[in-house]
Amino acid sequence: MPSLVSASSTSLQEEPALYAERPEWNDVTPLSQYEDAAPIAPIFYSAEYKDATDYFRGIVKTGEKSERVLQLTESIIRLNPAHYSAWQYRYETLLALDSPVDVELKLMDELAVSFLKTYQVWHHRRLLLMLTRKPAPELKFIAASLKVDAKNYHTWSYRQWLLAFFNDDDLWAGELDFVDAMLTQDVRNNSAWHHRFFVVFQSGLREGETDRARIIRRELTFVKQNISLVANNPSAWNYLRGILDTKDLPYSRVEEFVRPYALTTHDSTTDLVDLENPPPPPGAQLPCPAAIEFLADIHEKEGGKDRILLASELWRSLADEHDMIRKKYWEYRIREALKRVK
């Protein structure tokens, strides 16, 4: 729920009078919401909100687009940032007045932080950016707002939109470093993992990214190292799967890496550091169900009766011991796999 308190920048001296009390609004006829005096399931609005929205309905009816409409819609937005009609009307008014976009963007810098969780602040920003066509400063703004809420869905998709829409090499240039920084803060931040996938695999080829084999090696190394930092991190395992799926690579390519994570104990017999296959860290809680699942998938994809039976044993161990909440799913996997070898 958005905080209404932090949004208010008004001090006691400039306590806003109701629109009904402002002489300059005399010419507008406020419209109350319902003709029925007592509609079912009413919301108990504050006097301030009721007043502003009554005037807003009045304005919408006459179709007025003027400076004071910007003031009125701002009042409503500060009281209820999810009032999409106020946003929509505000945008149309900005266009009609040819209002300076940088001023509006400045206001948005403030509102975005206060109302991080509403769709409208982020979408309005998009509309403005399509007018200014100056995406570069936005990256910093987004990074700052992710400091407040590192998994905010709107913020991340706004960043992805910005990159894809303007599709400018300079914009993309710092993205991997940005993801690294986010994952260093919290390696379990799935939004950051998704962003990495978006940048590396889903946005077309850019300068320096054309050697795909090298990119795949780089990404595999990256994700393996992160699993070797925190073994039970579903975000990282999903990323590993994502790389292999999207490039149609066999899961068996990482079998050697995965195997120690599916064991119950750490294998301390070797001191050799294999950079290709970083081992589970000493603190890791093993076995890692994600690794057991992965091994089973390797077996299943390799196929053949023996491999399917090996996969089934692993699924069985998940069903009965390591991941019992999903028992029915693991049994389903066994059944489906066995169907194919009959």
């Binding site: 729920m1 399931a41 009413p42 919301i43 108990f44 609005y45 504050s46 909100y49 999810a82 009032h83």
Partner: peptide, 13 residues
């Protein structure tokens, strides 16, 4: 009726 914190749902009546 709904208490005033539901003002955030005014656009979702």
């Amino acid at each position: 009726g709904f208490p005033s914190r539901y003002t955030s749902q005014d656009a979702s009546q």
